[in-house]
Design a protein around this nucleic acid. Structure first.
Length: 257
DNA sequence: ATGGCGGCTCGCAGCCGA
């Protein structure tokens, strides 16, 4: 099965790109972040016309996550159980025995802001929930916009970004804690080009100049790792008119025997 | 990268993203 993640930065604006991408790549599941729309405005008819089911948890103007899938999903769960949060950032569902967890991890704004503290607390809550979730669902994939560049090689200019939000030590430690749960960064299971990023600032022609960060990830539980055949970033949609500032990431998982 | 763009909103300026 093909699973993918894409921060679309407004599903209303990016719907044509999403529909084109679905028809081109035919993923079995596509996790979306930053829908920026309420559930009553979710473009369900268009998604269904493209041959996909949709589970979604949206809100006005900010955040919002969805899981589009070819097959029907089970046990849909929005949010982190037991963690009060008005911001719609998590959606989990089971597809063909694989627990798909779609996350939009808080941005954090800057290391000295309240939003950064929220980000770290939020990550703590995510980690303790996932520890539990992994015992229930050994075949689990955590896909989304992590807003964390795990290593210096995930940053176009590590010196300039050193210690700043998305790259700070506490954020990278939280990412490492996710790995310690028994998850692996599927992107690093395979040889990749240098300067492979998933996000480029809209400003300063950052995409053209290859000034990006790798902050969107697909982590796989140990049980899924042996079944993973590929993981790559598709930078093509970033070249379109009115693109999202993020590119999709896709991984291929062979079905369990 | 001091900002620069582009999305959003009881819009016509300010907030937020990363």
């Amino acid at each position: 099965m093909k699973i993918a993640t894409w921060n679309v930065n407004s599903l209303k604006v990016r719907l044509p790109h999403v529909l084109d991408w679905l028809s081109q790549h035919q993923p079995d599941a596509l996790c979306l972040q930053e829908l920026k729309l309420e559930d009553r405005n979710f473009p369900l008819a268009e998604i269904e016309a493209a041959g996909y089911h949709a589970a979604y948890s949206g809100q006005k103007a900010y955040n919002g996550v969805a899981i589009l899938s070819k097959g029907t999903v089970l046990d849909v769960c929005a949010g982190i159980p037991g963690y009060e949060d008005e911001q719609k950032r998590v959606l989990a569902a089971t597809l063909d025995g694989v627990r798909i967890v779609c996350v939009y991890i808080p941005n954090g704004q800057s290391v000295d802001s309240d939003k950064y503290q929220y980000k770290l607390q939020w990550l703590d809550a995510l980690i303790s929930w996932l520890k539990d979730e992994l015992t229930r669902y050994p075949r689990l994939a955590l896909l989304g916009d992590y807003n964390i560049a795990p290593e210096d090689r995930d940053v176009h200019d590590p010196k300039a970004w050193e210690g700043s939000v998305l790259c700070s030590v506490p954020e990278r430690e939280a990412f490492h804690k996710l790995l310690q749960l028994g998850l692996k960064d599927s992107f690093r299971l395979f040889p990749q080009d240098e300067g492979a990023f998933t996000w480029w600032d809209y400003r300063m022609h950052a995409f053209r100049r290859k000034l990006g960060l790798r902050i969107d990830h697909i982590l796989l539980s140990d049980k899924l790792v042996p079944d993973c055949g590929s993981c790559r970033v598709d930078i093509e949609p970033r070249k379109l008119e009115r693109p999202s500032d993020h590119a999709p990431v896709i991984a291929e998982i062979s079905r369990a025997a």
